[in-house]
Design a protein around this nucleic acid. Structure first.
Length: 416
RNA sequence: GCGGUCGUAGCUUAGCUGGUUAAAGCGCUACCCUGUCACGGUAGAGAUCGUGGGUUCAAAUCCCAUCGGCCGCG
């Protein structure tokens, strides 16, 4: 662990938020920070130089995807994830636990890990009971899934060629050792927001056992004292879904294990998400970094920071960019809307990114309508710059002591 | 001038042995995307079937005329 050090620079007075610095063997990350997602060892549509020009500090890739293609062995032989993709800064890999959800309960459904039903909705009905019809329906749906979970691990059917693969906490850690990212995650089970309380509890207990197995297996390969160039930090993942008592229990158990930091995973109720982050972070050890997994909408970044999260990652900026939705200080716009065909102003007047400094909305709209690849590139540059720098500004506001004012001003305009 | 052929949504076409609200792809108009199955998904608008007659209970479908395009012969 010698190459890693997390220090808190300044804390909010009336909330859990803090600004800090996370040192890794490949450079420092000033927190709060937005981690750019590069699932398959590439940030889609961008070169590493472009990513780095956005002032992004760290890239997150995915264990499951890289295991399937090109294979962990090839990445290892290349000298590790960073060398392979020519990213010289810090790297992370997610464990593949999210795919237990995205290729499992969520596969082919229109289910996101964020539920918009609210606490009084469908989900709460299921909180303490398991309706027989529900069970039957879930059984029927399982047939079409690409991921099946049991107590020992997850069996995946490759979304690429249909071949079967088995992930366990031990194998996920082994693969992540080969991939060689600076920060790796324990193998967990991300659950659906529609999961019943009973299932959520069952999955959480399983994730806790997997966390211990991930940790043991990590320590067996690289003991904390071992001084070498391949040292990695391991983050445990808190689960518990939408339920406050489970979140607290999970934070207590995972927080009590000897992880280098923590991920906060699983599903949330949209309107209760920020509270949920707070429940967890009040319990997790204060001196270790916390990563709010898969979250990145502007309001959620403010809410996450305020409730003690240090790191965020999210596919939204890049995925939305590729589909024509772009962030502006006045909210999201869809560049494909007809009005933008003749709009010769930048995507966002106040943005300093390469796309905004050099191109117009009309041009970007044309690229998207013509399906030119540069559209995805300019959109991704803009959206990532927007989000990465929003988090940087949030950090600065903590240092300057005006977090609340900045939050109100930004969100007031963004959601106007 | 004669013979043939075609004319159905913005575009390219299906339907044409007559019978429910004329179909599709693309385009168009919106919306969605939160540890990437994702340059993807969902929804919607849009055609009085070239025009005018006729036959029929009923015509995009059959008949006549006419206009326009294309091909061939003069």
């Amino acid at each position: 662990m010698s190459g890693f050090k997390f220090s808190i620079v300044k804390k909010l007075k009336s909330a859990l938020g803090r600004a800090g610095v996370l040192n890794t063997p490949h450079g420092k990350i000033e927190t709060p920070a937005f981690v750019v997602v590069g699932t398959k060892a590439t940030v889609k549509a961008l070169t590493p130089e472009q990513v780095s020009s956005l002032e992004a500090e760290v890239v997150l890739a995915n264990t499951y995807h890289l295991y399937l293609q090109p294979g962990a062995e090839i990445v290892r032989k290349a000298g590790g994830l960073g060398k392979f993709m020519n990213w010289t800064g810090p790297t992370m890999t997610d464990s593949g636990g999210f795919q237990a959800f995205s290729l499992g309960a969520a596969f082919g459904q229109k289910v996101s890990k964020i539920s918009k039903e609210g606490p009084g909705g469908y989900s709460s009905i299921l909180q303490n009971t398991r309706i027989p019809n529900e069970t039957r329906r879930e059984k029927a749906e399982e047939a079409g899934r690409l991921a099946r979970i049991d107590d020992d691990g997850v069996t995946f059917k490759s979304h690429i060629d249909g071949s079967e693969h088995r992930f366990t906490p031990e194998s996920s850690i082994k693969i992540q050792k080969d991939l060689g990212a600076d920060i790796i995650f324990a193998f967990d089970e991300c659950t659906s927001p529609h999961a019943s309380y009973a299932y959520q509890k069952e999955a959480m207990d399983r994730t806790h056992r997997w966390a211990q197995r991930s940790l043991s297996s990590h320590l067996a390969v690289s003991p904390p004292s071992e001084p070498n160039g391949t040292e990695q930090a391991l983050f445990g993942i808190v689960q518990g879904g939408r339920f406050e008592d489970l979140r607290r229990e999970s934070a207590k158990i995972i927080g009590g294990m000897d992880f280098d930091g923590f991920g906060i995973g699983g599903s949330f109720d949209k309107e209760d998400m920020h509270n949920a982050v707070g429940w967890v972070n009040k319990i997790l050890p204060e001196e270790k970094p916390r990563h709010l997994l898969g979250i990145g909408e502007p309001a959620d970044l403010f809410g996450g920071v305020e409730n003690g999260a240090d790191l965020f990652d999210c596919v939204a900026p890049t995925r939305m960019a590729r589909n024509g939705t772009l962030y502006t200080n006045d909210g999201k716009i869809n560049i494909l809307n007809s009005a933008f065909r003749t709009d010769f102003s930048p995507i966002d007047e106040n943005c300093g990114c390469y796309a905004c400094k050099n191109f117009t909305r009309a041009y970007v709209a044309h690229l998207f309508r013509a399906r030119e690849m540069l559209g995805a590139t300019l959109g991704s540059i803009h959206n990532l710059y927007f989000i990465v720098n929003l988090v940087k500004k949030i950090r600065q506001s903590i240092l300057d002591g005006n977090f609340s004012e900045f939050k109100e001003k930004f969100l007031g305009r963004y959601y106007k």
